[in-house]
Amino acid sequence: MRRRSITVFTGFALAVAVGFAVAVSPYASASPDGLEKVAEKKGFLEEGRLAPIQSDSPIPDYAFPGIADERVATGMAGFVGTLLVFAVAFAIGWLRRRRASVSPTGAAG
């Protein structure tokens, strides 16, 4: 099998991730997850609350605001979130790398 370039690999993997987030997540199970179910059964679910800063969350509960269709809103949230996580993680890696090339201590690669 021919070796795929890193850009092709990354692009493909990112497309798969975005695809899942956009097209599959709206159909994900809405049942409570493990911790939520245990909290509900053992009676401490109502102790959970949002931090003050979270009441202004841009995309609360994975529903993109201003979109009436729940599934589209979830898919949109998945699209934005997945690309944002990619960008932030990439930026962190890039910044660390840049620091390494400025002071090449321990950078044997």
Partner: peptide
């Protein structure tokens, strides 16, 4: 970047 993105996306899939 892509590992973090994949994890974010997959965590949406209950």
């Amino acid at each position: 970047g892509v590992t973090a993105a994949f994890i974010f996306a997959a965590q949406m899939l209950n």
